[in-house]
């Protein structure tokens, strides 16, 4: 059962740069996929189109049954509620506590307080930060902040978690801690797509690896490693 289906997707930016050429891709439910490639290969564009930060110029993209290419600006939230996104720079609200940052994603749905409380603590427990619920993000280390961001992304129980270089700002040990958390989440049934530059992580995890080059999929390994082909 495919969760993501991309057919003949092309993305050309307004300045004329073609970031993605005729891309076809299928990702199944429950998969853990790395998207790798050199800088400017189109991997960021690819995942931005998945959560409709960017619109494809042509072709079709289906994410969990939603036709993303045809989704109107006003309706983007419908898609966003079905997936979670994690970034390199965490994108936390620094004036809110850890708890509030995570609860934020639930409150907009009008979920009762007790239920929010329960869900937030559960997910904070999952990322190992239950004891820091009342601290502010600035008082946390980078790895901890990223775990808060992950908690926020998954608190809704999304089918898909998109990670854009989540370990890009973190040291090696912390990166592996984050990967452990992501693997845990993946085991619970969430599909994960992760863009990364980190060779070590890709090699160690032995997951599906999609290699992009100049906007095209050049390799798609079932259980791949970060080969030297990239550089």
């Amino acid at each position: 059962m495919s969760l993501i289906e991309m057919k003949h997707v092309k993305k050309q930016y307004k300045n004329g740069v073609v970031a993605i050429h005729d891309l076809n891709l299928e990702i199944n439910k429950g998969e853990f996929v790395f998207v790798i490639g050199s800088t400017g290969c189109g991997k960021s564009t690819l995942i931005k189109m998945l959560y409709r930060e960017e619109k494809p110029t042509s072709g079709s993209i289906k994410v969990g049954g939603i036709d993303v290419a045809k989704l109107r600006n006003r309706k983007v939230y419908i898609l966003r509620r079905k997936l979670g996104v994690v970034f390199q720079d965490f994108k936390l609200l620094y004036k809110n506590t850890v708890y509030e940052n995570v609860a934020f994603a639930l409150e907009i749905f009008g979920i009762p307080k007790d239920e929010i409380h329960e869900k937030v603590l559960k997910v904070l427990d999952l990322v190992g930060l239950k004891h820091k619920a009342k601290t502010y993000p600035t008082q946390l280390s980078g790895g901890e902040q990223q775990r808060v961001a992950i908690a926020r992304a998954i608190v809704n129980g999304p089918k898909l978690l998109i990670c854009d270089e989540p370990t890009g700002n973190l040291d090696e040990n912390t990166s592996f801690e984050i990967m452990d958390v992501l693997e845990e989440i993946n085991k619970l049934g969430t599909t994960i797509i992760m863009v990364t530059h980190d060779t070590e992580i890709v090699n160690k995890m032995k997951k599906r690896v999609i290699l992009l080059d100049a906007g095209r999929v050049v390799k798609d390994y079932e259980k791949g490693t970060y080969t030297h082909e990239v550089n």
């Binding site: 609200l93 994603a105 907009i108």
Partner: peptide
């Protein structure tokens, strides 16, 4: 802006 961006990311509708 950041706050608004994050709100959109976590699935807040424009009205939200």
């Amino acid at each position: 802006k950041r706050e608004i961006e994050i709100m959109r990311l976590v699935g807040a509708s424009n009205l939200n």
